[in-house]
Design a binder for these strands. Structure first.
Length: 742
DNA sequence: CTTGTTAGGATTTTT
DNA sequence: TCCTAACAAG
């Protein structure tokens, strides 16, 4: 019996078809990862392919890690020399070796969205563009889609003839590119664009990678954009051993340039491509799958396919409607608690929503219900202020050409270097066409900075000192030295007590991430370098931090949930205007609604055993109360598949723009809630706390600590606790749910 | 040059 | 509602 016997007919066909182009259309839950991993195993074990010649591209680092792990289990040895990585990190690896051929230095830095925006602001200032008329974000969006389509600034300009707005954009695009180059920096899109440019212009480099990657596999193929497709087709151009796996029904990144034509064009670009459909679903119950099929069948533009399953019908889909989003959150928390009581672990449950902002209410509810949870998304760890500051130090030490980084930290912590001084340096640097940091090193050449000169000099001396440390000491020592010498943490502490603790924790985490990086490199027999660390850090997504070994409920957006599965799934906020989003509802492009529906399909098919969909009649959005109808997607699920609780009333559909009605509602709500608060007031206060000053207590998130003070707040007790790990926190007793220890 | 105040924007999704 | 960036005052 071999490992391939457990596959079905189509899966086996896909695994055994090793040579020549192959397109696998894999429906949700049809075991595509199994096919990919078994295919790799088959290549190595049966076909004698050197692992070194295999490249597998996934969407996230997490998926890459999992794939490697699973291949590891199937293959005896050698899996470590397979390249399994994301598009972006593959490109970085190639560019680090060869980008000097395009006139960059090999230690280029990578700009994230925030960096791009700062750079764009400077560009607009320079080009005298009013950012009130042309927003940085929309300019960047235009440039990004141009890059996705591999349109250069010059081409963009040609296309812009006659269109004033486009001409402006073209001008900005050109200047933006110039600045990036001057900073020796690439943005995310550049990583792909420059790699393709490199492969197109350097025959020997192309030849090398074509030889090396004789077998290429691409996961989540439906979400690739034009430049990614070009990258893959160049690499596979010689041997054509390219296997792509995708599902057009799960294409949810069109807004980011994902090009559905890549699936359709595949057979054109690679003639005699074999196409295999995987249509048996192993993940979900019959009811869940029927619901998913029913919803997605409303889309016109899709490849015909029919997913089926041998699984049992299972539970009906639970539909709940609530008065407010608070009620919804409360229900979800309680229901999860019920699941856990019935034998599930927290990890079996996931709550999915359309926008990150929805996580807040849920989080509050989970804290007060003592349910461990993890929120994926929102602000990336490496995008936090304190982390970016420290990374800017590291970047400055590593690559003095990154002006953005230098300017970020020149006065952080405060050194009395103000805007006027910085601008003078900037002007002088621009005039002489040298970098900001280089200008700092030749201070005497800059006019009118007599007063600031001494401070600037000591800043330069500090950086030069760090460079020395970087040469002789380990990375861990370097970061500690930076924190020490700059007094960064002390500065934080004096600034604001509330935030400071969390920020210091983040810094500690950064230190351990650096240590982990050093360890990992040593395991791989690589030398840990500053550039290496910065590179790794630039490309991590929040989803990568999900850890199956920890038991928590996962909260995330539908987009982040792609590729994951859970026994119990909650789709929250199923309301028109939220999901599908307001933008989509008001748009006159029907394609957008189809994409939104695909997103819904992705959400439904994440569920293995039980799916709960919920909505609220009334929801606070940016401080305003919105009255939403139930989502049109709910109406697309056949009624017989659903079960509604007592709380659901479909008849009640509230008009959105009726001022009188809203006023009436608001009045009612107010009247009602005052009464309720008064009640709560007595309840909470009447209830005595079972701990007092000096007692040891436990908090769900912050761990153990000692109560330092208890004060009577407006309607609740305010408790100050010194936590062992998390520092001092102030919180409301009824919200914090502290438990006394012993 | 630093600090405090205010006005405006954000929330559709992210490597 | 909350956060950021721009502006004004010390």
């Amino acid at each position: 019996m071999s490992i391939y016997d457990t596959l079905n007919k189509e899966q086996r066909e896909a695994v055994f078809h090793t040579d020549g182009p192959l397109l696998i259309l894999a429906g949700a839950g049809s075991g595509k990862t199994r096919v990919l991993t078994h295919r790799i195993a088959y290549l190595i074990e049966e076909k004698g392919v050197n692992p070194w010649n295999i490249l597998a591209i996934t969407f996230t680092n997490k998926a890459a890690g999992e794939m490697r792990e699973r291949v590891d289990q199937l293959v005896g040895f050698g899996s470590e020399s397979i390249w399994v990585s994301t598009f972006h990190s593959s490109c970085v690896r190639i560019l680090r070796r060869y980008i000097d051929r395009l006139g960059y230095e090999n230690n280029f830095t990578i700009y994230d969205g925030d960096d791009q925006k700062i750079l764009m602001r400077d560009v607009c200032k320079m080009a005298a563009i009013d950012t009130k008329v042309y927003k940085e974000r929309s300019l960047l969006a235009a440039i990004s889609s141009a890059k996705d389509e591999m349109i250069s600034p010059e081409e963009y300009e040609l296309n812009a003839a006659g269109d004033f707005g486009k001409q402006k954009t073209a001008k900005v695009y050109r200047e933006y590119e110039k600045q990036l180059r001057a900073n020796n920096a690439l943005d995310f899109d550049d990583l792909l664009v420059k790699t393709v440019q490199l492969l197109q212009t350097q025959p020997d480099v192309l030849e090398y990678y074509q030889q090396r990657f004789r077998y290429i596999m691409v996961d989540e193929y439906q979400d690739t954009n034009t430049v990614q497709f070009k990258f893959v087709s160049l690499l596979a151009g010689k041997y054509k051993n390219l296997c792509v796996v995708g599902d057009d029904d799960q294409s949810i990144y069109k807004f980011r340039g994902a090009n559905i034509k890549n699936i359709l064009n595949f057979e054109k670009e690679f003639q005699d491509a074999k196409v295999i459909k995987l249509e048996q679903n192993y993940r979900s119950t019959g009811n869940i799958l029927s619901a998913a099929n029913a919803v997605i069948s409303n889309n016109v533009g899709r490849k015909a396919k029919s997913l089926w399953t041998e699984n049992k019908e299972g539970e009906k889909i639970q539909l709940r409607q609530f008065d407010t989003a608070y009620d919804e959150a409360e229900f979800i928390a309680e229901d999860i608690r019920k699941n856990v009581g019935a034998g599930a672990v927290y990890n079996d449950n996931a709550v999915l929503y359309r926008t990150n902002a929805q996580s807040r209410l849920l989080e509050e509810r989970f804290v007060s219900s003592n349910i461990p949870y993890k929120i994926v998304g929102g602000v990336n760890f490496y995008a936090r202020r304190e982390i970016k500051d420290l990374l800017a130090y590291l970047k400055t030490i590593d690559n003095g050409q990154d002006d953005l980084a230098v300017r970020r930290i020149i006065n952080v912590p405060k050194r009395g270097i103000g805007l006027t001084t910085i601008n003078r340096v900037q002007e002088s640097a621009a005039k002489r066409e040298i970098g900001f940091y280089d200008a700092l090193r030749g201070l005497d050449l800059i006019p009118n900075i007599a007063r600031g000169a001494a401070k600037l000099e000591s800043f330069v001396a500090l950086i030069e000192y760090f460079k020395g440390v970087a040469r002789t000491e380990s990375l861990s020592d370097l970061i500690k030295e930076i924190i020490e010498k700059t007094g960064y943490v002390e500065e934080l502490e004096t600034e604001d007590k509330e935030d400071a603790q969390a920020r210091i924790e983040n810094i500690d985490e950064l230190i351990s991430k650096i240590a982990a990086y050093e360890e990992n490199s040593q395991d791989r027999d690589e030398k840990p370098t500053l550039s290496g660390f910065l590179e790794e850090v630039a490309l991590v997504a929040d989803i990568d931090s999900l850890d199956e070994n920890q038991d928590y409920v996962v909260l995330m957006t539908l987009h982040s949930a792609k590729g994951l599965e859970f026994p119990h799934v909650y789709l929250a906020g199923m309301e028109d205007g939220l999901f599908p989003s307001y933008m989509t509802v008001t748009s006159d492009d029907p394609e957008e609604m189809e994409e939104e529906r695909r997103l819904c399909y992705v959400g439904i098919t994440r569920a293995k055993k039980e799916l709960t969909v919920s909505c609220a009649r009334k929801r606070m959005v940016r401080g305003e109360t919105h009255y939403n109808k139930t989502s049109r997607f709910l109406k697309e699920i056949p009624e017989e598949l659903m079960e509604t609780g007592k709380t659901f009333r479909e008849d009640l559909e509230i008009p959105t723009q009726n001022a009188y009605f809203q006023a009436k509602q608001a009045f009612k709500t107010k009247a009602f809630s005052t009464g309720k608060t008064a009640q709560q007031f007595t309840v909470t206060k009447g209830k005595k706390l079972d701990y007092t000053v000096g007692d040891r207590v436990r908090h769900i998130k912050f761990g153990e600590g000692t109560v330092e003070a208890i004060t009577e707040g407006g309607r609740d007790y305010e408790v100050t606790v010194q936590f062992d790990k998390a520092g001092v926190k102030k919180m409301f007793a009824s919200f914090a749910k502290l438990q006394k220890i012993k």
